[in-house]
Design a protein around this nucleic acid. Structure first.
Length: 231
DNA sequence: AATGCGATAAACT
DNA sequence: GTTTATCGCATTC
């Protein structure tokens, strides 16, 4: 593990000074306009939280105001999404569908809206702990999907807005120890997203069993609408 | 293997 | 009032 007690870093301003253990986190600090490079580059990075360590195998990019309709920041900052406008390397954890938590890594310079959704990871440490949280599932299923990944890592809303870099929060992010071969990276439309379906902002490691299956966005009938007709 | 559906709560308009 | 960056189970091919 990495020791605690690092000084603050001028990270959000683009200065890569005094990173924990001399680690280079400049990938996260790239401009928001290069969010897809940051997302792609995060494949293979390792994330450790609450006794479980994973290798990131699937991510999605979200960024911008008025340019990415699928981003929580599309209409400007809100109480929930303002963290995406802050410094890079912070957890953005949000609650969806009344039951699931999803984890994002903030990116870009302070004042820019950018984050990378962590969609899947292969458990490389603490598998028994992950299993105790996920129930009796195959190992490849432990972190297969964003909500499952959060459960495996023991992350929920209490981890929102904590640092992933300096050890002050429950989760820490580390560059890849085994780099992902660039030719094994694939991209495609984001999962479950209605807007910008033509934008290939999902990236994954081809062939890794922990990558989640693609699911198209499914429109849902509005409450109060007439029930389906019976032929 | 692929598709469909409902659970269930909060953010946002 | 509407939407939702999901999952697990059921149904159908």
């Amino acid at each position: 593990m990495v020791p605690d007690g690092y000084d603050s870093m001028d990270f959000a301003n683009g200065h890569t000074a005094e990173f924990p253990g001399g680690v280079d986190y400049s990938l996260l600090d790239a401009p928001a306009s290069r969010i897809t490079d940051t997302a792609r580059g995060l494949l293979g990075w390792e994330l450790e939280a609450n006794g479980v360590r994973v290798r990131i195998t699937e991510v999605e990019a979200y960024a911008g105001v008025g340019e990415d309709p699928a981003s929580h920041t599309h209409n400007g900052p809100t109480p929930r999404s303002s963290v995406m406008f802050g410094p890079a390397g912070v957890l953005y954890v949000y609650f969806v569908f009344g039951m699931h938590w999803c984890m994002n890594v903030t990116a870009g310079h302070e004042g820019e809206a950018a984050a990378v959704l962590l969609r899947a990871g292969r458990v490389i440490g603490g598998a028994e702990l992950a299993r105790s949280r996920r129930g009796p599932v195959a190992d490849r299923e432990l972190g297969r999907g964003p909500a499952r990944l959060s459960v495996a890592l023991g992350i929920d809303g209490t981890a929102n807005r904590t640092s992933l870099l300096d050890g002050t929060g429950p989760a820490r992010l580390f560059p890849a120890t085994v780099p992902v071969a660039p030719e094994s990276i694939r991209s495609g439309p984001r999962v479950g997203v209605a807007a910008a379906h033509d934008r290939p902002w999902r990236f994954w490691v081809d062939g890794d069993p922990s990558v989640s299956p693609y699911r198209r966005h499914t429109p849902r009938r509005r409450a109060g609408t007439a029930p389906p007709r019976t032929p």
